[in-house]
Design a protein around this nucleic acid. Structure first.
Lengths: 227, 227
DNA sequence: CCCGCGCCGTCAAGGATCCGTAAGGACCGC
DNA sequence: GCGGTCCTTACGGATCCTTGACGGCGCGGG
């Protein structure tokens, strides 16, 4: 399901948006502040962000920059200011669309649909949805990992890490990319996380965790999932 | 260079758009009719399309459908109609953005920039990802080096050095560039490192390390990877 | 002819870095 | 409170980077 993050400090407007989006089949989260927005974007990875520029804590453009620093998620900007300079600044800061308040709900919904459509096209480049090795299988679509036919219980973080590796099966994934993809921006230096969770994945998935055959580490570079 | 196709039957407006876009560094084509637009999109593959809905021959929505039948090129729609229904129809037909006339030129330019930026994000689209010689192969995407079909274990520094040489295969790479690319700025004088690691690469990759055939040294200048 | 000099290749060793593993405390939902 | 998950820390061991020393080669000058 397509997930939308609505960033707006006016609770009434945010709730109205959420109701309409949910009626159209979207899964909606709400963030009332800029910091909450950055946090939720990195943690929940929405497919579209609807961002009101008039936030209490951070400037909307700063939030946009924060997101664009590491993500290409489509962002639809809402604003009460309709001057050309404001629009140009937001669009050049990385916004995908700019809607001035007041707006018609139907139009905004259509723009969110357009943004969501784009995100899916540009997204994962249509890889296979099941990555299987000699020892275990990862079903990306269902979110299920099996080993010898029986399902393996993975914690959310473990699965997220395995998912990133599986979507780049056969290719080396750098430590920085793994850290930002799984833990979000700002965690590029916490490389011990990788060691801990790679060890847990190997313990649950590798026949001989001490001698991994599929979850390969490239010292100093990153990790790779070898089919 | 980013190429834009402007579809508009009002010659004055089309020319004004073209002038402004070219001043921003875009390469611009103009199509005065819907049929010409469909033809040019298929033949010239623009990076962005600016589509006026008020065309003499075809309905703008039909043109949009025709394009979307086989292309995901970003489309910015222009229209004199500003009703919600019109906007929703165009956006749901596949438009990426909807601008009502009259519009500010700066805003439209910003929206075109935003659309162009999205199109570029779509693919990694970097050069050839595999460099192969008679003796060994380097898979830049996977981060794997093989020799006679079997994988060769390289240390991080060894791989980084080989990677720089592989991305400039056939060309001479100066010692300074190798040092700054692999060890970072400030190491331009440590040419000793290059000798040590080139020797290790040759020992691992060359059939006869004493007489290298692919990892060539240009005395006083730098090194080159000969396919 | 012989020597010194610059440049390159080779080897070895110590210290620094990185990885895997285990264990304990913090936090959250029920 | 409790089970589960996450974060953090510490430590042994393996690996790697750095550094130094030595020899070969080409070349020009003494």
């Amino acid at each position: 399901m397509t997930r939308v993050l609505v960033v707006d400090d006016e609770a009434a407007l945010a709730r109205a948006l959420a109701v309409n989006l949910r009626a159209r089949g979207f899964d909606v989260d709400i963030a009332p502040t800029g910091r909450a927005a950055l946090d939720l974007v990195s943690r929940t990875r929405p497919d579209v962000v609807v961002l009101d520029l008039g936030l209490p804590d951070l400037d909307g453009i700063e939030v946009l920059h924060g997101i664009r620093g590491w993500s290409n998620v489509p962002v639809v900007v809402l604003s009460a200011r309709s001057t050309g300079a404001e629009k140009v600044a937001a669009l050049d800061a990385g916004a995908d669309d700019y809607v001035t308040k007041p707006f018609e709900m139907n139009e905004l919904l259509a723009r969110v649909r357009a943004a969501a459509r784009r995100g899916q096209v540009a997204g994962p480049a249509s890889g296979p949805d099941v990555v299987s090795t000699e020892a275990f299988e990862v079903d990306l679509a269902a979110g299920i990992v099996t080993r010898g036919g029986v399902q393996v219980r993975l914690t959310p973080t473990e699965y997220h890490l395995l998912e990133v590796l599986a979507r780049n099966a056969g290719r080396l994934v750098s430590q920085q990319q793994l850290l930002t993809d799984v833990w979000g921006p700002g965690y590029e230096k916490e490389q011990h996380y990788l060691r801990v969770y790679m060890a847990q994945l190997r313990r649950k998935l590798e026949p001989d965790p001490a001698r991994p055959r599929h979850l390969i580490t490239e010292p100093g570079l990153g990790y790779r999932l070898d089919p």
